[in-house]
Amino acid sequence: MDIGAVLTTAGSLMLTGMVGVFIFLSILIGAVTLMSNLVARFDVAEVAIPVKSPSLKSQGVQSEHIAAISAAIAQYKSNNK
């Protein structure tokens, strides 16, 4: 096989792949646009879902942990003066 035939085969394969990807992406863009339009058309009024607020106890660090960390820092500072 000479180099011309190999380059022709490579070019043909490249062109086929690029056209395939272009067609696939075009179909994908069309499908997403169609679904977006359908959702916008049949969109139901938003239903308010009550959100359970987290309790105050679950927020932040527990006071016992803060006290232990503060004591450890104070001890470290007093030992390393």
Rank of each mutant, 00 (worst) to 15 (best):
I3Q: 08
K52E: 15
V19Q: 06
I66G: 08
S36G: 14
S70H: 07
F22D: 06
A40F: 13
A68I: 13
T33I: 14
L28A: 12
Q75G: 04
G11R: 04
I49D: 09
H65P: 03
H65N: 12
S26P: 04
K77P: 00
G30V: 09
I66E: 15
T9R: 02
S58R: 08
G17L: 14
S78M: 10
E64Y: 01
F22H: 11
A31R: 08
A45T: 15
A45W: 08
T16C: 07
V51P: 00
A68Q: 14
N37F: 12
V61M: 14
A67P: 04
L15V: 03
F42N: 13
D2Q: 00
I69S: 05
V39P: 02
V39G: 03
M18E: 05
A48L: 07
R41D: 14
L15M: 07
E46R: 02
S12H: 04
L28F: 11
S55I: 07
K77T: 00
S36Y: 12
M14S: 10
A71Y: 03
S78I: 05
V39H: 00
S36D: 14
I49A: 03
S12I: 01
S55R: 03
V44L: 13
I73G: 00
S58H: 05
I29Q: 12
A71R: 02
F22R: 08
